[in-house]
Design a protein around this nucleic acid. Sequence first.
DNA 1: ATCCCTTTGTGAACCGGTGCACAAAGTCAC
DNA 2: GTGACTTTGTGCACCGGTTCACAAAGGGAT
Lengths: 225, 225
Amino acid sequence: MKSPSQPRDRGIPEATVARLPLYLRALHGMAERGIATVSSEDLAVAAGVNSAKLRKDLSHLGSYGTRGVGYDVEYLVYQISRELGLTQDWAVAIVGVGNLGRALANYGGFVSRGFRVAALVDADPEVVGDTIAGLNVEHIDELEAVIKRRGVSIVVLATPAEAAQEVCERVISVGVTSILNFAPVVLSVPDGVDVRKVDLSIELQILAFHEQRKAGGPLMAVDSQ
Amino acid sequence: MKSPSQPRDRGIPEATVARLPLYLRALHGMAERGIATVSSEDLAVAAGVNSAKLRKDLSHLGSYGTRGVGYDVEYLVYQISRELGLTQDWAVAIVGVGNLGRALANYGGFVSRGFRVAALVDADPEVVGDTIAGLNVEHIDELEAVIKRRGVSIVVLATPAEAAQEVCERVISVGVTSILNFAPVVLSVPDGVDVRKVDLSIELQILAFHEQRKAGGPLMAVDSQ
DNA sequence: ATCCCTTTGTGAACCGGTGCACAAAGTCAC
DNA sequence: GTGACTTTGTGCACCGGTTCACAAAGGGAT
Ligand SMILES: NC(=O)c1ccc[n+]([C@@H]2O[C@H](COP(=O)([O-])OP(=O)(O)OC[C@H]3O[C@@H](n4cnc5c(N)ncnc54)[C@H](O)[C@@H]3O)[C@@H](O)[C@H]2O)c1
Ligand SMILES: NC(=O)c1ccc[n+]([C@@H]2O[C@H](COP(=O)([O-])OP(=O)(O)OC[C@H]3O[C@@H](n4cnc5c(N)ncnc54)[C@H](O)[C@@H]3O)[C@@H](O)[C@H]2O)c1
């Protein structure tokens, strides 16, 4: 009914999108080790998922496997990269160059796959003008100008919580629609803007919850009433 | 049929657990601003969720609201904290004190709610012995001893990817069952061990995917075949 | 060319989670 | 105490995602 190897249905489930980078990483590792072909079973193990799920995920991109054989590693790397938009490079700006912003700026794995730190911006006059990871830190007053000048399309927010919403609004005002937020606040943004948040404190609290369950066992401490 | 204000059913949905920290943060903000009572609607807005979902989430902990009035802020803070296990304090070790490990060690918000950085461990002799955020960096050879001595129950992995699996196994061997992993690898762990991962690169790739969709619009580039 | 073996791609059942919508429960004013 | 009003707690329908299990497809040996 449908010709093989089609780009397919433009509706990839969100859960699938979130796993594609995992497959890509596993595939890169395999390519480095000279593996040419991989079965869904092996790739699934490497990525830490169920093989049926992996096959269904890949089937959303097209029919890129060969029955009885598996998937061609190089080809699949290319297809997933293209689907994720990693064949182009993305200019990223980091706003807030403190502890965290610095770590991110110095992080090499950042650049590795299509992402390029194109600007660092901070409000502190002590920090503005410094060179970090070969990049000049620019003043927050220049925020909009810098974003436009450098063609930034993804902004990483590493400012204190209080500043995050304002910075967020300002970058949106110059057309940014993709934000990665490290500040512990709920950002309010218009439709069409994607915000992903990374929240260390929440992760720890989730771990603590399970840890408590394991430790406390079936019956908890005496304060249960 | 059931008495009011019971600790309830010991099976809280994972999705609910993941949101409790969000509610807690919003509630802390309200408590600071002197708000004594809050409706599910207001709290839901502050936490960025739907109010029905919030009420259902809270109902898993017990019947802590008052119909016609709302929830008592202080009381709810206490109940959620207790449920998450934040009434005790948790000793956290950070293994790998590079760019990221340092940023985490220096991060204040870490300590704020029940979490205490109790140990820093690294393999690099240049780093071992340094004092960071008032803590001495210890040698990786001492890993197991340090974890036992300090009563560490949560380990944060900020080593290079290559070292992560090994460190992981070692901390598990001395009883750690909660790990927060920043290294871009799939850790393989026995049942009963919780691993949560924070993966910046995946977050960026997900943003890039959506950014590409927005930019490319309905019909994509010419290479679509 | 045929048969056997492997592995994909997917139909269908299942499962956890979401959100609507409303009855039950409680407050407050009088 | 009564009635009007507010807000909770939840039954229920729905939805996206997961997993099982298998027919269809392809490769390779003979
Ligand atoms: N460091 C961590 O490990 C960590 C972990 C989780 C979350 N966070 C969050 O990440 C954010 C940054 O953390 P950090 O430890 O780097 O803090 P930090 O205080 O070290 O750095 C914040 C930086 O933002 C700059 N800044 C302040 N206001 C600004 C503005 N309006 N515009 C631009 N820059 C501004 C400051 O000058 C400073 O350099 C915080 O919201 C924090 O809660 C940090
Ligand atoms: N820096 C970031 O922004 C960032 C972002 C995302 C992910 N990561 C990941 O986090 C991890 C740490 O990143 P980083 O930038 O801090 O790297 P880094 O190289 O600055 O730090 C790694 C540290 O781990 C130590 N180490 C190496 N082997 C070790 C071992 N066996 N036991 C204990 N310590 C050991 C090193 O001595 C070094 O101090 C990496 O896996 C990286 O991919 C970092």
